[in-house]
Design a protein around this nucleic acid. Structure first.
Lengths: 356, 356
DNA sequence: CTGTTAGCGCATTCAC
DNA sequence: GTGAATGCGCTAACAG
């Protein structure tokens, strides 16, 4: 609780001017070794901490941040993430941030390529990337690396890139959470259906695959692999979905648990609700609007939430810490908590403010 | 993304000086009705938002905050809450906050009375109260109300008081979460033991009672009241605990789920682990060190976490918002999310930083 | 190499 | 009633 030392006090104690102190604080040249050491010693002794906010005021620089993520409808994963970004911007509204968003179609590599190609032209000081396609992402990253523009990944990270930070969920852990929940909830002789949806080679499929690995590992470790039935369905076309699900549950009455490793759990939930099939526990990912409705009416038992708002929020604060003070986190890959959301604790996650 | 308007720009547009703008911003007197209206109109039009941080710098006031909460060992609930308070203080280290802590014994009203009686003498600008005893709390609150000192409750709130805000968990919801988890996990013909510990008339017992009501209501709503066995044990004396638990589980082999509505779930977890009794799902509250150990070794299945760090963190930020700008939240009673923590997602809650 | 100075957005005191 | 002037902690340009 000792009073924070100011730059003026440090200067006085060191017998130099504030200009010199400022120079050693920012590692700028033009300071004699002797002065530098003396000032540094005092800095360490009093545990000097720079005042982030006054410093930001004095800097009065404009920062141009470009955000490129998949486009999303209201209430979907990427929409929530953008909300977190906005909130962080508000919190830092004393810094002048110019922010451009380039959304792309996450199922269309060409759309992604086009969006990413526009990034450099906007002359960003930093970039937030929600990556999807391997090739396109690597191309963008190497261009940014060349120009020395820092970038941050959200949701997914890619090998052989140099992001300032990456905020992702631990997807395999998500799979094992699902396994733990379902195994505890269905009887020893019942079965758990793992519903995989056919989809392209995009990041969604990657996340789902990682979750699947985590789930399979959990089942193997607990000697319950035999309780799992893997089925691949085409959940894309609503017309055929009904038939596929009907035949699945018709031919497998022993299925008492279902997991869907992406945000489309509502498709199963809605089916079970409409058909009036009870006593099947459904677990899926992401607090999207449709999933939430299923959670509320009981057709989904639990949702695993990756805190997309928080990812977006942290992406911005991390970026600004770097832009203002060149501060980097020690471990650039940050794993977000995976929240287990039931009907009973849903309200508190819906209103969560990522900043406060 | 429009640039934030500054006080200078507002003044220019209104054709007045910054002094006058400042006067209307802070609702001070000495402004003609005409000027006030004109300035207010421009303020509203551009959506002016004060810059919290530069303003804090200019104010250079000292704030004295007193914290009075139950004393706790490392890793316990109140210890975590204090950690959150410290983190918030760090984040606001540009504001000069003088902070005194008065801890008391939560099982001893006299100790509480003594601590609370010292509060006024410290001349606080604001107080954070972790309340326990009804009488003592009301006495303190009325004294603070008299002196116009704002105070905030954490963990629990009391009727007939006027706190600036209260951060608590929704205890009945905690009970229903436990109910939902356990009912889903034990067979239809198995039983769930609700273990109540004998304890005094303090806040812990209040919280536990509220959780119990939530649990009972859940059981009633889902027509599963018959699955519940309520037992009252004296978990205070370690010597007799073993015998009591042994006789409980010995005489009721149909018990497959156990809930403990306070943070002492580890007592049951440790018993089951030591006795080698498998297949009983234990659910309890709070991420204390001993509970965490049980979660890790599987003797506790789930812990409900109330985010004590966050409560402490928010208490401080809310207080400072008020002290600096007289800002109050619309709803002074804020319910914290109740996190469901399994072994699989434990790591992410352990490292959670309440601020970032 | 170092000190001085102007200025960031805001609050406040003191003249007018 | 109002404006000008000063200062908060900090940055950066400039002068020596």
């Amino acid at each position: 609780m000792a009073k924070q030392a100011t730059i003026t006090e440090i200067a006085k104690r060191a017998g130099v001017s504030i200009g010199t102190v400022d120079r050693v604080l920012h590692n700028r040249s033009g300071v004699s070794k002797k002065s530098r050491e003396k000032i540094q010693a005092i800095l360490d002794e009093v545990g000097y901490k720079i005042n982030l906010h006054t410093s930001a005021v004095a800097l009065r620089k404009e920062y141009r941040i470009v955000i490129s993520v998949p486009e999303a409808s209201e209430g979907e994963y990427w929409d929530s993430l953008l909300k977190g970004i906005s909130q962080a911007m508000e919190e830092y509204s004393d810094i002048h941030i110019i922010c451009d968003t380039l959304a792309y179609d996450q199922f269309d590599p060409a759309s992604c390529r086009e969006a990413f190609s526009k990034v450099a032209g906007l002359n960003p000081d930093a970039v937030i990337i929600g990556p999807t396609f391997d090739r396109e992402t690597h191309d963008l990253c190497s261009k940014l690396d060349e120009n020395g523009v820092p970038y941050i990944f959200v949701d997914t990270t890619f090998p052989d890139t140099n992001p300032l930070a990456a905020f992702t969920a631990d997807q395999p852990a998500g799979g094992s959470i699902i396994g733990s929940l379902l195994c505890s909830m269905v009887g020893k002789d019942d079965r758990i259906a793992l519903i995989l949806s056919k989809s392209g080679e995009n990041v969604k499929a990657q996340n789902a695959e990682q979750r699947r690995q985590g789930l399979l590992q959990y089942m193997a470790q607990t000697s319950s692999s035999g309780r799992l039935i893997e089925v691949e369905l085409d959940l894309g076309s609503p017309s055929s979905t009904h038939g596929q699900l009907a035949s699945l549950f018709g031919s497998h009455p022993e299925i008492k648990g279902v997991c869907i490793l992406n945000s489309r759990g509502h498709i199963v939930g809605e089916f079970l609700r409409n058909e009036g099939i009870p006593n099947i526990k459904v677990v899926a990912f992401d607090l999207t609007d449709r999933n939430i409705r299923c959670l509320e009416d009981g057709s989904i038992f639990a949702l695993i939430c990756q805190r997309p708002e928080r990812q977006g929020f942290l992406a911005v604060t991390t970026l600004l810490e770097y832009l203002l003070y060149r501060r980097k986190s020690l471990n650039p890959h940050i794993l977000m908590p995976l929240d287990i959301v039931l009907r009973e604790n849903l309200p508190y996650y819906q209103t969560t403010d990522p900043g406060v």
